[in-house]
Amino acid sequence: MAKHDRDSNRLFYSAADEVVHAEYPEDVVCGNPQLCSPAYRLAYTDQDFMLTEEMRSVRLMLELAKPEKTLQALGISQTVVMFGSARTPDAEQASIDLAAAQSGNLSDTEQKRCQVAVEQSRYYEQARALARLIAEQSPACPGGELHVITGGGPGIMEAANRGASEAGAKSIGLNIVLPHEQYPNPYITPELCFRFHYFAMRKMHFLMRAKALVVFPGGFGTLDELFETLTLVQTKKVQPLPILIFGKQFWQRLVNFEFLVEQGMISAEDLALFRYVESAEQAWDIIRESL
């Protein structure tokens, strides 16, 4: 029996082999209506077909399978998810922006915005510090190394990937295509930098290996990710895990959880699904004790 192109242990040629076999010389294709027809393309190489509404379920499966294959191959089985605003600057940049606003005689509103950014920048530094602690200390914990995983963008996400990178550890970024430009932050390990179309698949990957969830102040996206996780734990669709919310003052002003209890919308014991934290060290102690 003839040996196959790539793997002599396979009886069938691989899909990659078949793509090569399916190619025709240009002079053969030219003028041949059958070979030029879209119907003749291999289904999995036909982008027009793959992007049709009917193939949505297949595209969902692909977004589940591609990162999963890579993470398994690299032996990544435990993660700490870190969410937060893409707009939170690091302390140095926040100070520069505030000084520029003040010296440029900008409006009180703009100066106030810059002042708030300076205050919020402490969360960038805490996220960075926590990721560094996770990278440096988790290999000695039961179960082995934890990898930081973020949404892959700027702000808090950048801070977390940055902290892991500064400790010499790999970290994961799950970027998503948006109508406006978005680029992955430069601190994500390149082979662990993934891009999604579907929010649902992206959020599923956040939790598939999660040992803890750490949530920093943020907007709609952060709230969405936090409350989806709380719902999954509350309804016992996932195993309980530490859900740590950074900045009690911020979150209590934003969400009145006690009011939900008073109105009978959640149970009093649901308040135990999460904990407030104020420092990277406090958060890491809780995560480590839960392992």
Score class of each variant (00 low, 15 high):
residue 272 A to R: 08
residue 254 L to F: 13
residue 174 L to I: 10
residue 211 K to Y: 03
residue 189 T to Y: 10
residue 264 G to S: 03
residue 193 C to F: 09
residue 170 K to Q: 04
residue 178 L to Y: 00
residue 224 D to C: 05
residue 252 Q to D: 11
residue 171 S to Y: 07
residue 175 N to T: 15
residue 237 K to I: 04
residue 180 H to D: 02
residue 207 L to F: 13
residue 196 F to K: 04
residue 234 Q to M: 13
residue 174 L to C: 11
residue 269 E to S: 15
residue 176 I to F: 01
residue 166 E to I: 05
residue 220 F to I: 13
residue 266 I to R: 07
residue 214 V to R: 00
residue 214 V to D: 06
residue 240 P to A: 08
residue 175 N to Q: 15
residue 277 V to P: 06
residue 223 L to G: 01
residue 245 I to G: 10
residue 209 R to F: 05
residue 198 Y to H: 08
residue 220 F to S: 04
residue 215 V to K: 00
residue 234 Q to V: 10
residue 199 F to H: 04
residue 171 S to L: 01
residue 256 N to P: 05
residue 267 S to Y: 10
residue 265 M to Q: 07
residue 262 E to K: 03
residue 203 K to F: 07
residue 226 L to Y: 01
residue 204 M to W: 15
residue 222 T to C: 06
residue 192 L to S: 06
residue 273 L to H: 05
residue 225 E to M: 07
residue 169 A to M: 12
residue 266 I to S: 09
residue 272 A to W: 01
residue 254 L to N: 11
residue 249 Q to M: 08
residue 216 F to V: 00
residue 203 K to L: 08
residue 226 L to K: 02
residue 229 T to F: 00
residue 175 N to V: 14
residue 211 K to E: 07
residue 213 L to N: 12
residue 173 G to C: 01
residue 273 L to C: 08
residue 216 F to S: 01
residue 182 Q to I: 01
residue 221 G to V: 00
residue 273 L to M: 10
residue 269 E to F: 14
residue 230 L to I: 09
residue 238 V to C: 13
residue 171 S to P: 05
residue 242 P to R: 14
residue 259 F to M: 15
residue 245 I to L: 14
residue 176 I to H: 01
residue 178 L to R: 00
residue 168 G to K: 12
residue 182 Q to K: 02
residue 200 A to L: 12
residue 184 P to H: 04
residue 243 I to K: 03
residue 239 Q to H: 14
residue 166 E to S: 08
residue 194 F to C: 14
residue 176 I to W: 03
residue 194 F to S: 15
residue 202 R to G: 04
residue 173 G to D: 02
residue 239 Q to N: 14
residue 218 G to S: 08
residue 203 K to R: 13
residue 185 N to W: 07
residue 272 A to P: 01
residue 198 Y to K: 06
residue 245 I to E: 05
residue 254 L to V: 10
residue 184 P to C: 03
residue 247 G to M: 00
residue 259 F to G: 14
residue 257 F to M: 12
residue 207 L to W: 11
residue 220 F to K: 02
residue 223 L to H: 06
residue 239 Q to K: 15
residue 167 A to Y: 12
residue 207 L to E: 12
residue 217 P to H: 02
residue 276 Y to P: 05
residue 216 F to W: 02
residue 206 F to W: 11
residue 174 L to R: 11
residue 161 N to Q: 11
residue 174 L to G: 09
residue 190 P to Q: 11
residue 252 Q to Y: 04
residue 205 H to E: 04
residue 275 R to G: 05
residue 184 P to T: 02
residue 183 Y to Q: 13
residue 223 L to Q: 03
residue 235 T to I: 07
residue 209 R to H: 13
residue 197 H to L: 12
residue 252 Q to R: 02
residue 233 V to P: 01
residue 257 F to S: 09
residue 179 P to H: 08
residue 189 T to P: 13
residue 166 E to R: 12
residue 235 T to H: 04
residue 207 L to D: 13
residue 272 A to F: 02
residue 195 R to Y: 06
residue 210 A to S: 14
residue 234 Q to K: 14
residue 263 Q to L: 00
residue 246 F to Y: 15
residue 188 I to T: 12
residue 237 K to C: 08
residue 255 V to L: 06
residue 229 T to I: 00
residue 246 F to A: 15
residue 263 Q to H: 02
residue 220 F to N: 06
residue 261 V to E: 08
residue 235 T to N: 09
residue 225 E to H: 08
residue 200 A to H: 13
residue 252 Q to I: 04
residue 270 D to M: 04
